[in-house]
């Protein structure tokens, strides 16, 4: 009888299409975001995150009709991130049907954006995404905050930055280990735990999931409130339901 730990599949969207290989049996169109979202919903996903990786501003608006279509069919929380730079961007995404908006680089360039967006729409819909990279090994572990896909060092310390955006009004942190992202070797557990234990707001662990045990590890040892994964679900390796069954077997409270 407790709050369930969440499993959040992440869909990368480029110019209106879901990218990364998608391999569901029975989908008419492997890249159709609405069908993929509906499938994850049927499998028991607790939320969905859409990451708009469109580089050009021309393609940016193509995410809006997708969110509208998904929100008309799937009745679980939807988070959208990628390229959010202003309160106007937040408004457009919320009006399209997003429940939360994730802000990354723009929060670093202009921290006031977090305060303004949270002040206007409430902390519950403002997620700050932090891309962290280890800068010092254990036992004096430190992580820096990076932008531009992990290429640019912002000079910020990940834990200090997380505390700062919590203070500014963020309702949740999406924490990605840039060292682990795409490696499938598991979360950076030390990073996840350090940030989650330092904060009063929920933390979503991201980056590195290759097996269902990694998801369990993120919750049990990383102290994450939610775990996000893309490829293990996209490629059809595992279903969300399988992930939840394993978590339940490990004694983790999940919604099944």
């Amino acid at each position: 009888m407790a709050l369930a730990k969440r499993i959040i599949p992440c869909l990368d969207v480029n110019a209106g299409r879901v990218v990364k290989g998608v391999n569901f049996v029975g989908l008419r169109d492997a890249g159709d975001p609405v069908e993929i979202a509906a499938r994850y919903d049927e499998q028991g996903a607790d939320e969905l995150t859409f990451l708009d990786i469109t580089a050009s501003s021309d393609g940016r608006d193509l995410i809006l009709p997708i969110i509208e279509a998904v929100a008309a069919r799937v009745f679980i929380p939807l988070t959208v991130g990628g390229g959010v730079r202003s309160v106007a961007d937040v408004r457009r995404l919320l009006n399209a049907g997003a429940d939360k908006v994730s802000i990354n680089t723009a929060a670093i360039q202009n921290p006031q954006l977090v305060a303004d967006a949270a002040g206007h729409y409430g902390s519950q819909c403002i997620v700050v995404a932090i891309d962290a990279k280890r800068t010092a090994p254990a036992p004096d572990s430190k992580w820096g905050v990076y932008t531009h896909g992990g290429r640019k060092d912002s000079g910020l310390d990940a834990i200090e930055w997380a505390l700062r955006v919590q203070e500014l009004g963020a309702g949740e942190i999406l924490l990605t280990s840039m060292d682990r992202d795409g490696t499938q070797v598991g979360f950076d557990i030390e990073l996840t735990r350090a940030v989650s234990d330092a904060l009063d707001i929920p933390v979503i662990a991201s980056g590195g999931v290759g097996t269902l045990e990694h998801l369990v590890d993120g919750i049990v040892n990383g102290h994450a409130d939610a775990v996000l994964a893309a490829s293990i679900f996209h490629y059809g390796t595992y279903t969300v339901r399988q992930a939840k069954e394993l978590m339940a077997a490990r004694g983790i409270e999940v919604r099944i």
Binding site: R6, D200, I252, E253
Partner: peptide, 22 residues
């Protein structure tokens, strides 16, 4: 007011209360 309370799994109560509950 989570104070020092812990959930049944020993975790802290984060605020906001966010997610699926019974």
């Amino acid at each position: 007011d989570p104070g020092t309370a812990r959930d049944s799994a020993g975790g802290r109560f984060k605020v906001p209360h966010m997610g699926w509950n019974r």
